[in-house]
Design a protein around this nucleic acid. Sequence first.
DNA 1: AAGTGCTCCAACCGCAGAATG
DNA 2: TCATTCTGCGGTTGGAGCACT
Length: 222
Amino acid sequence: RAPCCERVGLNKGQWTPQEDKILITYIQTYGHGNWRALPEKAGLSRCGKSCRLRWTNYLNPGIKRGNFTKEEEDTIINLQQILGNRWSAIAAMLPGRTDNEIKNVWHTHLKKKLNPNQILQSSKRKIESRDNRSNSVIEFSSSSASESCSDFSSPSTESSSNVSERDNSNASRNDESTCDNGVEEIEESFWTEILCVNGCDSPLMEVDSSKNEDLSFWLRIF
DNA sequence: AAGTGCTCCAACCGCAGAATG
DNA sequence: TCATTCTGCGGTTGGAGCACT
């Protein structure tokens, strides 16, 4: 199968402001339509995949910029416990946030909070010195993370390190074993809580009905 | 002030599933 | 039904910027 960017000479790497402007103007005028054909029509030396990524992760006006709130981080942690690394499904619960952004936040912040023992000694020292300067983060990791786990009867009994042992490396196993005890015991109210936290009438929820179907899938399982 | 190491995030890559002919 | 193309997803990487020594 031919690679995505079979054309030689396509731009790669960071997008320039000019490229951003061209992409925004084109999509706002014509819509994205066929991503593969878009770059040529718009006059961009990029592959369609790169254009789609740039739009969905950065240029889309519906994207919420800035730091994640405590509630958002809570939601990510909760959903990661259940869904594993299904970032797109998690993103569907967080209006305005992209799967890529959530994935980055998970790998750079939240994963460490759940399992600080995994941090290398050298890194650990640095992080601690940073966190001492920003106590809010530390406070969240010690209180909020455990609070969020208390939403589940089974996982809440585990230590934070045990919980995180099930995270990334076992994500696929989580997907396969949706009838695991831990998942089975999750109360249905969890979902309504999550939805209410983020607003049932959020724009993304309305726009992307397929995401709701994804939610329905999990509701059926429970 | 300079060098080194680390963090974070935007972007890329490859794969799988959906859509299409 | 099969082959091909397109789209979306998740893992991974590169490099800019920051912190520390």
